[in-house]
Amino acid sequence: MKIIVCIKQVPNTTEIKIDPVTNTLKRDGVPSIINPDDKTAVEAAIQLKEKHGATVTVITMGPPQAEKALREALAMGADEAFLITDRVFAGSDTLATSTIIAAAIKKLGADVVFCGRQAIDGDTAQVGPQIAEHLGVPQITYAAAIDYDAAREVLTVKRQFEDRYQTLEVSGQCLITILSTLDKPRYMNVWDIVDQDEKEVGLITYKDIEENLNLADIGLKGSPTKVKSTATKQFDKTIETVELDPETAAKTIVDALKARHLI
């Protein structure tokens, strides 16, 4: 089985702060990480490899510094890694991004594609299903557990909804998007850290995949959606904060709710 895992390097948004003076995001010094759902996708792929034998290829699209995320995935145990990077890819929205990544996957060839469910910087969850459509393969999103039946060559996926789970089966090529709750990603292995130093991170540029790619469909020009404007969040509530002992606090809350006919 050949598994390709798509990952994204993201700023650790839990550490993003707003500059109170300029009202802009302070990204300086915010560390970059492998997107959490994607890291679990790498873990899931390596587990399949360990149980059933597979090759795990990790790919990412991004600027040259995204190589660091690929090296981390190699140190977890991925077999090979490719950085999809080119100036003509810049400014791509989710549809254009998925078009590029799908072209790269076509070139590399894969039986199964894993993605994280969504990235913490954009939270769109769109690129995975869009890649699946470009590849013409079925998708299963929100995977909370994955199992492979080698005898039947069937993947069984526990698919999470807000109020239920589905157990789904798929055979043949497919794309699965994975929840970080599926499993905890392993730490980088000491030997794999040493090994990954010797591994090459392959480069995929526009020229490498141009037979599967139309310039009109990628980059800023090939993106149907455009950002019109951005704004930061404003809070405008009337605020009343008091320090109280638990007993008085309880009475204050119950009185306030009663006064507003909420209870």
Partner: peptide, 12 residues
């Protein structure tokens, strides 16, 4: 976007 730190208005 960015975990609710920023709002973006998008057109198509």
């Amino acid at each position: 976007a960015f975990g609710g730190n920023l709002f973006a208005t998008i057109i198509c």
